[in-house]
């Protein structure tokens, strides 16, 4: 059996009094692609934000690469270099050029050699067809281009594990395919372990090894993708799929 990259045990999350995640148990193996599905407000984003410490959790444990995470800010800073995250709103730093956005982590956080990091960043940019955009500022890019840079920025840190939080949700439809192909390439060619939160059902079906279905902060089912899309275990998931119209 392959190594477990991440295990979540009995995780509970509250916003003040409001209970938003209930007894989350989840484990992900090396190279596995998990898509997190569920209606809006079900806690998908909150869950993956817990996984790299952007949200605090009140109970439970997260074990990353065999080690239990002690959730201090210092520890998270270390772990976040191993867990890349890409957001819905791309969030490139507008004060830095594309290449400097990408190099900030490798050079300042990881103290990588500057010229080697630059060469690699250029290579990564080329792999997403943006090699001519290294020295422009983010405001000159389209949404799809920004999102591709954001993915490269996360990859430049050599993460072992990637989190994608609705990365195509704010893009024009014609930009979506390009982004999805990049993620698919990562999954298939680079065998990257990842959790993908998405509303693109076709894409989820193409890429997922396993689907985790979440509603109101509860994991209702975890099902191999093939089975989930043909015959999910729960009626709720079936109703969700029927409503998605894809």
């Amino acid at each position: 059996m392959a190594d477990k990259v991440l295990e979540v045990e009995h995780l509970e999350k509250y916003y003040q009094k409001k209970h938003v995640l209930f007894d989350i148990n989840l484990s992900i193996q090396q190279g596995e692609v998990v898509t997190l599905l569920g209606p809006s407000g079900s806690g998908k984003s909150t869950l993956i934000r817990c996984l790299n410490g952007l949200e605090e959790y009140q109970k439970g444990t997260i074990i990353f690469e065999g080690k239990k995470i002690v959730p201090t800010e210092k520890n998270w800073q270390q772990i976040r270099q191993k867990i890349g995250m890409v957001f819905q709103s791309y969030d490139l730093f507008p004060n830095l050029t594309v290449i400097d956005n990408i190099l900030l982590g490798p050079i300042k956080v990881q103290k990588q050699d500057k010229s080697a990091a630059r060469v690699e960043a250029k290579k990564l940019l080329k792999s997403v067809d943006l090699e001519d955009y290294a020295d422009v500022y983010p405001r000159e890019l389209s949404g799809g281009q920004k999102q591709r840079v954001a993915i490269v920025r996360a990859l430049a840190l050599h993460p072992d594990f990637m989190l994608f939080d609705e990365v195509t949700a704010s893009l024009d439809p014609e930009m979506v395919r390009g982004i999805l192909n990049i993620i698919k390439g990562l999954a298939n060619m680079d065998n990257m372990t990842m959790i993908v939160v998405t509303h693109e059902m076709n894409f989820a079906q193409e890429i997922a090894d396993r689907v985790v279905f979440l509603e109101n902060g509860h994991i209702l089912e975890q099902t191999p993708a093939k089975q989930f899309f043909s015959k999910p275990k729960t009626d709720r998931a079936q109703a969700f799929l029927d409503s998605m119209d894809f």
Partner: peptide
């Protein structure tokens, strides 16, 4: 400065000093 800027800085492992120095203060 939008909250997302802070978060995407944290997501690449910046510590608090680096976050202010390279992301928040310049903006």
């Amino acid at each position: 400065v939008p909250k997302h800027q802070r978060e995407s800085g944290m997501a690449i492992g910046l510590n608090r000093y680096q976050l202010y120095r390279y992301v928040l203060i310049p903006q």
